[in-house]
């Protein structure tokens, strides 16, 4: 199966856009459960992530945010229920339309450019197209000047930017991010968020885990709030911040400790 979508080869302006004909949304959790030794860590009866602006998954530590992200991305198999992507069960074909950035960037011990090329190869692009796209991606990530540098010698912010660019190199429909800025300073955080806003504007669905209310305010279009493995609520961001319906979310936003 080969895509010939124009967004791939042509425009630098659309370097962060998904491949054409992406139909892996909505992302739906149905009776999704995950338990270990009978202990239920996550139980989501019904949740849908729709195309549009960034969806932020929020909640205190241990709420199951990262677990939900991994189940959505197929890194972990659910013990109950299923994830459906664009009406199909999650499988190799749908997973290939997703990408993920982890809390701590996992970079390959190669040059910056080689890291991005790794993502491009996974996307199955022809060689010539890879080269054009590589330049565009490095420019978008403000990494053009460091293309030849060993990736593991970059600063923390640059490393995470590279991880985002490498993930976007596969031109995914959905980009998952698991607390990508939790260890970054404000400037580096802002750079990542700018990048995500641009990718979102070009049509890439952003699904981001955070426990930072500020990041929710700056980035989210809608919010999924998890507490103790349960979904407390899913709301548009304005209502979530001003008038959250769940007590857990209200407590969390007001600064109370949730356990």
């Amino acid at each position: 199966m080969r895509d010939t979508g124009q967004s791939f080869t042509g425009g630098d302006a659309r370097a962060l856009a998904p491949r054409a004909r992406g139909r892996t949304l909505p992302l739906v959790a149905r009776h999704l459960g995950y338990s270990i030794d009978g202990k239920v860590l996550l139980n989501i009866p019904d949740l849908a992530i729709h195309p549009g602006g960034p969806t932020v998954i929020m909640g205190p530590n241990g709420a199951g945010k990262s677990l939900l992200l991994r189940l959505f991305h197929g890194l972990i198999q659910p013990t109950q229920g299923e994830v459906r992507a664009g009406g199909q069960p999650l499988g190799p074909a749908t997973r290939r339309r997703q990408a993920m950035v982890f809390q701590r960037p996992v970079l390959l011990r190669r040059s910056v450019a080689a890291n991005v090329r790794f993502g491009l190869r996974r996307a199955g692009l022809p060689r010539a197209a890879r080269r054009d796209r590589l330049d565009a991606l490095l420019a978008e990530g403000d990494l053009s000047g460091k293309a030849g540098q060993l990736a593991t010698t970059l600063s923390g912010g640059e490393q995470q930017r590279l991880a985002v660019m490498r993930a976007l190199a596969t031109a995914p429909d959905i980009l998952f991010l698991d607390e990508p800025t939790s260890s970054l300073d404000p400037a580096a955080t802002q750079a990542i968020e700018d990048l995500l806003r641009r990718a979102s504007a070009q049509g890439t669905k952003i699904v981001l885990v955070t426990h930072d209310p500020g990041q929710v305010r700056r980035l989210a279009e809608d919010v999924v709030f998890l507490h103790r493995g349960q979904m407390a609520e899913q709301s548009p961001v304005d209502r979530f911040l001003s008038d959250a319906r769940s007590a857990a979310a209200r407590d969390f936003l007001s600064g109370d400790l949730l356990v």
Partner: peptide, 12 residues
């Protein structure tokens, strides 16, 4: 141990 999830994410 360090790379499994990332490589899995890339569909490997």
């Amino acid at each position: 141990t360090d790379l499994a999830e990332q490589l899995d994410s890339f569909g490997l």
